[in-house]
């Protein structure tokens, strides 16, 4: 009865790894929502902001040429957009790809690890892209208009590797939170999302209320200051890993029943 059982899949990697890589490829096969849309939006953000910055400078030159010279256009939206968009990508691609991967007879475990792999790859890609944009922004002295569109120096970062690290950790964090939410939806439908937001709400309240009740607000504030952006980004790994493990456990009993 066990004759003819083989686990060959296309590719050269060992079975399990190859299957996980294949799921990641399945997520990435349709480039439009993962690459074309966000890159197009980044382009628009750049162009609109530069036009705006240029217009403001022109207007100021008519009134007060000296202050126009020192004018510093600032917009934090460029990088923040991609970071939040990662959450959207994770929610969308898990909830839509899961029923399809089931048709391809992928185990839930392979599907989950493959999804995580895809988001890690996407996070590295976008962290790199944004770091390069910020580097160019620096190099050209704000696109020759003294404009900061993608930069996140205001977070107290000093070098491009630091910027890359903070972006990467944030992107991974948001994609893992997004996958946890999506998995809850896949398994429990609307009630899953209600539960997700309830948990987030309770956590947020805890972070705010506990320091007040225990009169440790100053200590907590001091912790954030001394830990700094780099430290906080590193600490994001903790909720990221928790979300990752929770997602895996929740998906194990999920069904694509419509």
């Amino acid at each position: 009865m066990n004759e003819n059982i083989e686990t060959k899949t296309e590719g050269t990697l060992p079975g399990a790894l190859q299957r996980i890589v294949n799921v990641a490829r399945l997520h990435l096969v349709n480039k439009s929502s993962l690459f074309k849309v966000p890159i197009f939006v980044l382009g628009l953000v750049l162009i609109f902001n530069l036009v705006l910055a240029w217009t403001i400078i022109q207007l100021m030159q008519n009134v007060d040429p000296e202050s126009a010279e020192n004018y510093h256009y600032w917009s934090g939206g460029g990088s923040g957009f991609i970071v939040v968009y990662m959450l959207v990508i994770a929610v969308q691609s898990i909830s839509m790809t899961f029923p399809f991967a089931q048709a391809y007879s992928v185990t839930r475990r392979d599907f989950y690890f493959g999804s995580i792999l895809a988001y890690l790859a996407l996070s590295v890609f976008y962290a790199t892209l944004l770091s390069v944009l910020i580097w160019i922004e620096n190099l050209t002295n704000g696109w020759w208009l003294n404009a900061q569109i993608f930069s996140i120096w205001y977070l107290g970062l000093k070098t491009i590797p630091e910027v890359f690290f903070v972006l990467l950790m944030s992107l991974i964090f948001f994609s893992f939170i997004g996958s946890a939410a999506a998995v809850l939806f896949v398994r429990f439908k609307a009630w899953g999302l209600v539960g997700f937001f309830a948990v987030i709400g309770v956590l947020a309240l805890t972070v705010i209320v506990v320091p007040i009740l225990t009169r440790t607000t100053d200590a907590v504030g001091a912790w954030f200051v001394t830990t700094g952006t780099i430290g906080i980004s590193a600490w994001l790994l903790v909720p990221t890993v928790i979300a990752g493990i929770a997602g895996m456990l929740i998906l194990r009993r999920a069904t694509p029943v419509s």
Binding site: N4, I5, T7, T9, G15, A16, R19, N30, S33, Q92, S93, M96, T97, P99, F100, A103, Y104, S105, V106, T107, D110, P256, S258
Partner: peptide, 18 residues
Amino acid sequence: AKVLSQLCFIKESQRYPD
């Protein structure tokens, strides 16, 4: 995975990514 990789089942109401 050993067993599932031998199966193919496209449901009548199969959902595909959008």
